[in-house]
Simulated assay, not measured.
Amino acid sequence: MQRFLQLLQTAPGGCLNLRRAAELLGCRNQRLNEFRNVMYGLNLIESDSTAITWISQCPVISFLMRYETFQEELQLREETLDALIRSCSKQLFTVTDDRENAAMAYVTHGDIGRIPTFRDQTVIVVKAPDGTTLKVPEPEEDRIQVHLKGAGPITALTCDLRTEDTSVFVSLEESPMKTMKTESSGSQSVCS
């Protein structure tokens, strides 16, 4: 894009022939069309099938300098996000794979109750082996279904946050929700 903008800057009258630009840049017409569509969408150019003309009040050189600054800023933010993702991954690995931490890996009724999104809701908590799939078909008028399927035991508990009771989670069989289990190992369907 930068080289394309530089070509546009030097084009006589701000009008650039796309075929000539493709030759000078050594790129496909499709790539130039992508640039053209972006700039057209930003109301920077007018375009026909063979050429583009710069129409923005901002000179091409100003836009080019902003583009370079913006690109540097994006690269810095991307590097920062990558570092945060690596740090979070390392912390998550430490928490989940350390046997000493396993005893502390739980959530209480109070923990969930403090999350504003879950207030006045019935929450279903699932503990399942890696590779377990969860499917939620389109809700019907009077019920929502959740299908869990995994290779191994699946534990599903409910936590009714509409009550002031701070008791522990209850199994699906003990909850007011209607449940149905399928016969295949490790599979459950929940209806409410």
Rank of each mutant, 00 (worst) to 15 (best):
L25N: 00
T80S: 13
L64P: 08
T96M: 08
G152V: 08
P139V: 10
A156C: 12
E100G: 08
S167E: 02
K90M: 10
R114G: 08
E183A: 14
D120H: 11
L172H: 06
S185H: 13
M177A: 06
G152K: 01
E34W: 10
D48S: 07
Q188Y: 06
T69C: 14
V136E: 12
F169Q: 05
N33P: 04
M1D: 08
P59Q: 04
P137Q: 07
S192T: 11
D120A: 09
S192I: 11
T108K: 04
M104G: 02
G152P: 00
S56F: 13
I52M: 10
T133I: 10
H109Q: 03
A21H: 02
L81I: 15
T155F: 08
L84R: 10
S192L: 15
E174L: 10
D142N: 07
E68T: 13
I55S: 10
V125T: 10
K135I: 12
S184H: 07
T122C: 10
E23P: 00
S87G: 13
Q71L: 13
T96I: 05
E72F: 13
R66A: 15
T179Q: 09
Q57Y: 04
Q91I: 14
R77P: 03
R114I: 00
I144V: 12
E72Q: 14
P153S: 11
F4C: 11
N37V: 08
E141V: 14
E46I: 12
N17E: 07
S185E: 14
V125N: 02
V60H: 11
W54V: 06
A103L: 09
A21L: 05
P59E: 07
Q145S: 05
I112W: 01
L157G: 01
S87T: 15
L84K: 12
M1E: 04
E141N: 12
R20E: 14
L25S: 03
F63H: 14
R19P: 01
T53F: 01
P139F: 08
F93R: 10
E79C: 06
L7Q: 04
C15H: 01
P129E: 00
T10P: 03
Q30N: 14
R119S: 13
N101P: 02
N37T: 12
G26C: 02
C159I: 01
G110A: 05
L84N: 12
D160M: 04
E46A: 10
D160V: 02
F169V: 04
L44A: 07
E23W: 00
D111G: 05
L7F: 03
D160P: 09
I144R: 06
E79N: 13
